[in-house]
């Protein structure tokens, strides 16, 4: 027992360490830096810049031991967002005297639409990459803890945290229900239409189940003195933000502000 007490005293009476220099940044600093990087693409609007950001994000994840996590989500996004946007632009983007890339059974693919899709796709991907990096390097509990320290209410931070968990729980429930449907002989695999037909009937019970469990969740939280009006203790302790971290945030924010200002000036001058 004493060994356990010692272990947890050491753990919770010292700053939480992730073992990674960027992971140890304050969650709000990480959010700030990555949001700015992700948002730059929206202002620069050049696919080469956004693609460069995506490559840098990949490199950053790989150099900091998060390649597997980053790659597993980002690859899916490339197919879902990147390819989808290019397809949509090829369908909808029209210019005079287009340069034909190729002709697919009468569907003319143009370089102009392709670059337009590439521009928009890479902007969204670079922003999404920044968000994925944020989650790769930040635990939700630390984010909420730092938000609460900045004055966000306990209830708000709980709702935000619990929402993430609810998504995971709902997904797990879908898998369980689909498995039991399969055991009853209902076809749940195959082409998208078959999958949709199997999925559609479970939506209502799934949502009703989630609603009824939210009532029990309230009772559970109430039992944990969630509504008590006293100063809360925070078991976890985050590192005091060091000067170099503050400096990095200020420098990145200043560069971003300069970029936005430059774009605004150009907009008004032209």
């Amino acid at each position: 027992m004493d060994t356990l007490i010692q272990h947890y005293s050491d753990l919770y009476n010292h700053d939480q360490k992730s073992g990674n220099w960027f992971g140890d940044f304050n969650p709000l600093s990480k959010l700030n830096i990555l949001l700015v990087i992700g948002l730059c693409g929206f202002f620069i609007q050049d696919w080469r810049f956004s693609l460069g950001v995506c490559i840098l994000e990949y490199l950053f994840a790989a150099l900091n031991g998060k390649f597997k996590y980053f790659n597993s989500i980002f690859l899916r996004l490339i197919f879902i967002i990147g390819v989808f946007i290019i397809l949509i632009r090829e369908l909808s983007y029209k210019v005079e005297n287009p340069t034909i890339m190729f002709n697919l059974l009468g569907w003319k693919w143009t370089w102009e639409a392709f670059y337009e899709g590439l521009r928009l796709g890479t902007v969204i991907l670079s922003f999404s990459g920044a968000i994925i990096l944020f989650y790769a390097f930040t635990t939700m509990r630390d984010l909420m803890y730092s938000l609460e320290q900045k004055g966000v209410s306990h209830a708000t931070s709980y709702v935000m945290l619990a929402s993430f968990q609810t998504i995971i729980d709902l997904r797990a429930s879908v898998v369980t229900i689909m498995e039991s449907q399969k055991a009853r002989g209902i076809e749940t695999q195959g082409n998208p239409l078959v999958r949709l037909k199997a999925f559609f009937p479970i939506i209502t019970p799934l949502l009703l189940g989630a609603l009824s469990s939210s009532e029990e969740k309230f009772v559970a939280m109430d039992a944990r003195a969630f509504a008590v009006e006293r100063k809360h203790t925070f078991l976890r302790q985050l590192r005091k933000v060091p000067a170099y971290e503050k400096l990095a945030v200020v420098a990145i924010d200043a560069a971003f502000a300069a970029l936005v200002l430059y774009k605004l000036v150009r907009l008004f001058v032209h």
């Binding site: 007490i5 947890y8 005293s9 919770y12 009476n13 306990h154 039992a223 944990r224 003195a225 969630f226 008590v228 006293r230 100063k231 809360h232 203790t233 925070f234 078991l235």
Partner: peptide
């Protein structure tokens, strides 16, 4: 969690 909400001192929680 409940002890944190009650504002119990950290070492006592542990």
């Amino acid at each position: 969690m409940g002890l944190e909400n009650l504002g119990i001192e950290k070492n006592k929680i542990i």
